[in-house]
C-alpha cells in the first residue's frame, strides 16, 4: 500500500475517534434517561476501536454528560453571581421544595432532575433557569411553580394516553 493511502486511512480513523464528544452527546440525547450508560460506553469504545477508559475519561470530564440515569426533564438552575444576586437561592428553595429533592438529585418518579449550571448567558434576565432546551428568564418563586405545573401536567397527559 502506498504511503499516502496509509496516511489517508490513518487520518480517517483518527478523525472518527475525534468525533467522540459529539457521539457521547448524541447517545445521551437519544437515551430516555438522559445519560450515557456503561453499556453505551462499551459500545462506543468497541465501534471506535478505542479503550473504554478513553471513552470514560472524556465522558466523565464534561459536566453536560451524565453517567448516571437522570429524569425525563432536566431543570438547570444558574448558580453564578448575577443570578445569585438576583434571587437564585429563593428559586432553588422553591424548586427543591416542590420536587422534594435537592440539587443533583432526581425525583423518584424519574420525571425531573435538578442541576446547577454555570451561567446560561441570560444575565439580562436573571435569575434564569433552563428546563431541557427552554430558557426561562426573570423567574420568580411564583412563576417557577406555574412553569413546573405545566411540565407535570404534560407528564400526566402522556401517562394517561399511554395507559
Amino acid at each position: 500500500m502506498k504511503l499516502e493511502t496509509i496516511n489517508n486511512n490513518i487520518e480517517t480513523i483518527v478523525k472518527e475517534k475525534q468525533a467522540l464528544l459529539q457521539i457521547l452527546l448524541a447517545v445521551q440525547d437519544a437515551s430516555p434517561e438522559n445519560y450515557v450508560s456503561e453499556d453505551s460506553v462499551n459500545e462506543i469504545a468497541y465501534s471506535l476501536n478505542v479503550s473504554r477508559s478513553r471513552v470514560y475519561s472524556t465522558a466523565s470530564f464534561y459536566s453536560a454528560i451524565s453517567l448516571k440515569p437522570r429524569g425525563r426533564h432536566i431543570i438547570r438552575v444558574c448558580i453564578n453571581a448575577p443570578c445569585e444576586n438576583a434571587g437564585k437561592q429563593e428559586i432553588l428553595a422553591v424548586l427543591e421544595d416542590q420536587l422534594g429533592i435537592i440539587l443533583g438529585q432526581t425525583t423518584s418518579d424519574r420525571q425531573f432532575t435538578l442541576e446547577g449550571v454555570s451561567c446560561l448567558g441570560a444575565c439580562y434576565a436573571s435569575p434564569a433557569i433552563k428546563i431541557d432546551n427552554t430558557l426561562y428568564g426573570d423567574v420568580t418563586p411564583e412563576s417557577v411553580i406555574t412553569i413546573l405545573q405545566e411540565y407535570r401536567k404534560e407528564a400526566e397527559d402522556v401517562d394517561c394516553s399511554a395507559s
Binding site: N80, A81, P82, C119, G121, A122, C123, Y124
Partner: peptide, 11 residues
C-alpha cells in the same frame, strides 16, 4: 463557548 459568567454577547 461563551462561558464567562455575566456575558451574553455571543448569544
Amino acid at each position: 463557548d461563551e462561558g464567562e459568567p455575566g456575558t451574553f454577547k455571543d448569544r
